[in-house]
Deep mutational scan, measured.
Amino acid sequence: LETFPLDVLVNTAAEDLPRGVDPSRKENYLSDEDFKAVFGMTRSAFANLPLWKQQNLKKEKGLF
């Protein structure tokens, strides 16, 4: 999966995202380093959170 810089994904409308980016899964296009910096946890820890908590975190970080 291709990764993009944080500033390309945060608070970006679906139509302005790079081609192929799923707007409902912007976090998947962050590098592992950016993911950890944004969410303060690994991808696996994030995946283990309840869906509502994942969505709330994504909203807080501008990735929803």
Rank of each mutant, 00 (worst) to 15 (best):
K26R: 14
Q54M: 04
F4A: 03
A47S: 11
L6M: 09
A13P: 13
E60T: 08
N48G: 13
V10Y: 05
V21Y: 05
K61W: 06
F46R: 00
P18G: 04
V10G: 03
E27R: 01
F64P: 05
D16M: 10
N28E: 14
P5W: 03
L57A: 05
N11E: 07
A45I: 10
K58A: 04
Y29A: 05
V10P: 02
L49H: 01
Y29H: 12
L63I: 07
L17P: 04
T42G: 10
E60H: 07
A37Y: 12
K59L: 15
R25A: 10
D32T: 07
V38P: 00
N48I: 12
E27W: 02
P18I: 04
E15T: 08
S24D: 14
E27K: 01
P23N: 05
Q54W: 00
S31G: 06
K36Q: 15
Q54V: 02
F4Q: 04
M41W: 02
A45Y: 09
P23W: 02
V8A: 10
T42C: 08
P50V: 04
K61I: 07
P23M: 06
F4W: 13
L57H: 04
E2V: 15
P23V: 09
N48T: 13
K53H: 13
A45H: 11
L49E: 05
L51Q: 11
M41N: 00
L9C: 04
T42P: 08
N56C: 15
N28A: 14
M41Q: 03
F35N: 00
E33D: 13
L6V: 09
D32M: 06
E27I: 04
E2M: 15
Q54A: 05
P23F: 04
Y29T: 02
W52H: 10
A37I: 13
F39C: 00
K61E: 04
A47I: 10
E33I: 11
G62H: 06
K53R: 12
D16Q: 09
P5I: 03
L57Y: 05
S24A: 14
T3V: 13
N56P: 00
G62L: 05
V21K: 03
Q55K: 11
T3Q: 08
L9G: 02
D34G: 04
E27C: 04
K59S: 09
L9E: 02
G40K: 10
W52Q: 11
A13H: 10
L9T: 03
L17T: 05
A47N: 12
E15Y: 02
S31V: 03
L6F: 11
L1G: 12
T42E: 13
F46Y: 06
E15P: 09
P18Q: 03
V21D: 03
P5M: 04
E2G: 13
L49Q: 05
T3Y: 15
R19T: 15
K61T: 08
P18T: 03
L9R: 02
G20C: 10
E2N: 10
W52M: 09
P18Y: 01
V38W: 04
P50T: 06
D7Y: 08
E27Y: 02
V21S: 03
L63V: 04
L51Y: 13
L51F: 13
D7P: 06
L17A: 04
R43F: 07
G20R: 06
D16I: 06
L51T: 10
K61R: 09
G40M: 10
K26G: 02
L63W: 07
F39Y: 01
R25M: 10
M41L: 07
L1S: 12
K36V: 15
N48P: 01
V10F: 06
V21T: 04
T12R: 09
L30P: 01
W52I: 10
L30S: 01
L30I: 08
P5G: 07
F46D: 00
F46E: 00
R43W: 05
L49Y: 05
A37D: 11
F64D: 15
L1I: 14
S31Y: 01
L1D: 09
G20V: 08
L17D: 03
G20T: 09
P23C: 07
G40T: 05
E33M: 10
F46T: 00
F64N: 14
A14L: 12
N28C: 14
Y29P: 01
K53T: 13
T3D: 04
F35S: 00
S44M: 13
D34C: 06
A13G: 09
L6R: 05
E15Q: 12
M41T: 04
E2K: 13
K59Y: 09
N56E: 15
K26A: 06
E2P: 15
E2D: 11
G40Y: 05
S31M: 04
Y29D: 02
W52L: 08
T3K: 09
A13D: 09
N56M: 14
Q54Y: 01
S44K: 13
N48Q: 13
E33H: 10
P18R: 02
A14G: 09
T3S: 09
F39H: 00
F64Q: 14
R19Y: 13
A45P: 00
E2F: 11
T12S: 12
A45R: 10
E27V: 03
G20S: 10
F64M: 15
L51N: 09
G40E: 11
M41S: 01
S24Y: 12
R19F: 15
F35A: 00
E33A: 12
L1E: 11
T12H: 08
A37K: 13
W52N: 08
P18M: 03
L51R: 10
F39S: 00
G40H: 11
S24E: 14
A47G: 11
K53P: 00
P50R: 02
T3R: 10
P5Q: 05
E27H: 03
S24T: 15
P5N: 04
L49T: 02
E33F: 11
A45G: 07
S44H: 12
E60F: 06
L6P: 07
R43I: 04
K26Y: 04
P23K: 07
F64K: 06
K61Y: 09
S44Q: 14
D22S: 04
F35Y: 02
R25G: 05
N28T: 10
K58G: 01
V38F: 06
D7V: 10
P23I: 08
L9N: 02
W52R: 08
V38G: 01
P5C: 05
N11P: 05
D34I: 06
T3H: 11
K58M: 05
F46Q: 00
D34E: 08
Q55P: 00
S24K: 10
D32E: 11
L9A: 03
F35H: 00
N56K: 15
Q55W: 10
E15K: 13
T42Y: 05
F64E: 14
K59Q: 09
V38A: 08
A37V: 12
N11G: 10
W52T: 09
S44T: 13
N56R: 13
F46S: 00
Y29Q: 02
S24H: 13
K58Q: 02
T3F: 15
L6K: 05
G40F: 06
E27D: 04
G40S: 09
A13Q: 11
K26W: 05
F35G: 00
